[in-house]
Structures are given as C-alpha cells and as structure tokens.
C-alpha cells in the first residue's frame, strides 16, 4: 500500500499550488508553518517557490532550519522548486551559501534577470517526459553539479534546470503552476 503524507513548507510563496497538485494525486498533505507542524509523521517534504531570502529568514526565526536539514540528511524525500532549489543548494556562484545546504549543486539566483526575463519553455525531463511545460519566474539555474551523485534531469538553453540526488529532487521551474502533474507523480511514486 502506498503510504503518502507529504509536508508542504508553508512559510511563504506558492505552497497552496503544490498542495492542490499533490491532493489531485490522492496524496494527503499538511502545511508546515512552525515546529509543532513539522513534528507530525510524514513521508516527504515539498519546498515551494517564493522568495528564498524570506523563506530562509523564517526557517531560522521559527527554529525549523536544523530539524528540516537533519531530516533530509537522514533520507526524507524532498522536492524543491525555484526558491526550494535555492534553499537546498550548497553553493551559490561558487561560494558556500546559507540555507538547508543538502544538495551538491552550485546555483545562480535570478539567473535570467528581473521579471522581464521570466519565460515559458517546453523541454525534456529525463525519465519523465520530453514535452514538459516549464515556467521560469525570476528563476535560478544551476551552474554545475558538485558531486557525481547528482543526476541532471533537464537542461534549458544550455543550463541545468532540474536535478536529482538520491532522495532529493529540485527544479528551477514551477511544475506546480501548470496542469502537468508528472513531476509530482514521479516524486510521490519513485522517491522513497
């Protein structure tokens, strides 16, 4: 039997969109706004898009940063989109960064510039689809991976935009803003 109860980090950003997508797949979700929420049983965590600096500040102030980091290091499946990817990254522009720092990737924030640089694309995501709709909103990309453990799932315009490292999945784009639930399904079904 599939046992799926996914925590959705609900500090700031587009977390409701993730919840709706997961619920559409028949998965139970709950919002994490403080430590007492986090302490519930869960089979995975989604970190949504939003502002990474805001989410980082709140993770710190609400004493969530270390318990969440610990849980990911101990093998809790995690899926981060956009700001979520940034929070998972160990490096930014070649320097160590503050955040959850659990994925061996080097990110570039606001890599496409300001809002005028936001765009849509359709691209291939390895193992999942060759026609995946991608929405990039003031998005980051990944300069490079820092370990052979990191699998590159997708590139757009020559930059890495989706990766998997074991139980960790991250995209620079926002699958939660589209009607395509294949990445969420992949996270729920293939990442234990």
């Amino acid at each position: 039997m599939r046992r799926n109860r996914i925590a959705v980090l609900a500090l700031q950003g587009a977390f409701i969109e993730h919840e709706q997508m997961l619920q559409g797949l028949g998965v139970e979700t709950f919002e994490v706004r403080q430590l007492s929420d986090w302490e519930q049983p869960k089979d995975g965590l989604v970190i949504p898009g939003g502002e990474s600096t805001t989410q980082f500040r709140l993770l710190n102030d609400l004493a969530l940063l270390h318990p969440i980091r610990q849980a990911i290091l101990e093998g809790l499946p995690v899926f981060g989109t956009c700001a979520g990817l940034i929070l998972l990254a160990k490096q930014e522009d070649g320097h160590p960064r503050q955040g959850l720092c659990t994925m061996d990737i080097d990110v570039c924030r606001n890599a496409y510039g300001r809002q005028l640089g936001s765009f849509n694309a359709i691209g291939e995501v390895a193992d999942i689809a060759n026609d995946f709709p991608m929405t990039f909103i003031r998005a980051p990309y990944i300069h490079r991976t820092l370990s052979p453990e990191v699998e590159i799932l997708s590139e757009a315009d020559g930059h890495i935009v989706a990766v998997r490292q074991g139980h960790q999945l991250a995209t620079a784009f926002h699958p939660e803003l589209t009607a395509d639930n294949r990445l969420h399904r992949y996270f729920v079904e293939r990442m234990k």
């Binding site: 500090l11 700031q12 950003g13 587009a14 502002e51 956009c82 809002q115 765009f119 003031r138 926002h174």
Partner: peptide, 16 residues
C-alpha cells in the same frame, strides 16, 4: 503569455 507570467510572479509573493 506575459499576463500569465506576471500573475504567476504575484503567486510567488503570497504569504509575504
């Protein structure tokens, strides 16, 4: 397309 992207930026600001 831009209208949609612009609505989506606002979605990223939610809860903020």
């Amino acid at each position: 397309n831009r209208q949609e992207l612009n609505r989506q930026l606002a979605q990223m600001l939610k809860g903020g």
